[in-house]
């Protein structure tokens, strides 16, 4: 073992406190984001999710194209509907679990404390992790969508390029909102396993239980269209779905009386309303997560 050598450590006389620096808010966030992104890229979950999503997206596109070759065009509704279902199922799962693991995982490995002992605020750490994961998720989605778009292009796709691009954008925003929720779960959890469990439960709730519950409510209480609509768009997944359908069809009439009501009542502002709901789902859980992370101060 070599001896320690202190030649490099500065002399006491030029050691004045004004030499001590720290990064600005934004630079700290970007630094953490970069680290988080790099960690995500080399992690198994990112690889797994990217491969799974890409395979599924290509599979769905391929299936929706199958048999359409002889007439050279795809079922318009089928590709879109297939992708829509896939996104609603898989993207929340990806984003929720990715978010849930982040703080809880660091906590479990004991690395959180060490980061927090650095000149870094809790807000910066959390936001940095959020940004890093968000970029990783969006990259993962872009790869999946990009390759399936390649397939659609090759087989002369039925979904317009513009609509498809909007689908990617909406899916990314949905991922951001679910990531936000995942991070909120994470700051509350001591162990990554527990956080993942909770996020799976939340996923189940958002994807299935809330819709099934609302369906039951609609039947049992004979809810009026405006009530069904108001209750439905609380769920970011439904808001996402409606936004995609508006983008594809310019109206929500495929969604029956409730959709027609929404199209008539809100008209041009409907996409903004729905986007607003999802953006709120991005901001609120993240804000609450930051608040809890700062107040509770668990490591």
């Amino acid at each position: 073992m070599s001896t320690m050598n202190l030649n490099g450590v500065s002399r006491p006389e030029n050691q004045s406190k004004n030499r001590v620096t720290h990064l600005s808010f934004v630079r700290s966030i970007m630094l953490i984001a970069r680290r988080e992104f790099r960690d995500a890229l080399s992690s198994k979950w990112f690889l797994l999710y990217t491969i799974a999503f890409t395979t599924l997206a290509i599979g769905v596109s391929f299936l929706s194209l199958a048999g359409s070759g002889e007439h050279g065009f795809a079922g318009f509704g089928k590709t879109a509907a297939g992708l829509l279902n896939l996104i609603m199922l898989v993207v929340p799962l990806m984003a929720l679990t990715a978010g849930a693991g982040t703080i809880a995982g660091e906590r479990e490995r004991g690395t959180l404390l060490y980061l927090l002992a650095q000149p870094l605020s809790r807000t910066e750490l959390l936001l940095g992790k959020y940004v890093g994961l968000a970029i990783a998720l969006i990259c993962s989605l872009c790869i999946g969508f990009g390759l399936s778009a390649g397939l659609l292009a090759w087989r002369a796709g039925g979904v317009g390029a513009g609509s498809f691009l909007m689908l990617v954008v909406f899916a990314s925003v949905l991922a951001l909102s679910m990531l936000s929720l995942g991070v909120l779960i994470s700051v509350q959890s001591r162990r990554a396993g527990v956080a993942t469990g909770i996020s799976l439960f939340v996923w189940l709730g958002l994807v299935f239980l809330s819709d099934l519950g609302l369906m039951a409510g609609t039947v049992l209480f004979k809810l009026r269209v405006q009530e069904v609509f108001a209750l439905a768009i609380i769920n970011p997944l439904q808001a996402f779905k409606m936004n995609v359908i508006i983008n594809l069809n310019a109206s929500l009439d495929v969604l029956g009386p409730v959709g027609m009501y929404a199209s008539q009542e809100f008209g041009e502002s409907l996409p903004w309303l729905l986007t607003g709901v999802i953006v709120l789902w991005c901001l609120l859980p993240l804000a609450v997560a930051i608040m809890i992370f700062r107040k509770r101060g668990g490591i």
Binding site: M88, F208, D211, P257, V258, G259
Partner: peptide, 17 residues
Amino acid sequence: REPNLRLFVHSPAQQAI
């Protein structure tokens, strides 16, 4: 029976049913 439920087409909940 309940046309309002059409709101839920294209969703995983529909598949679940």
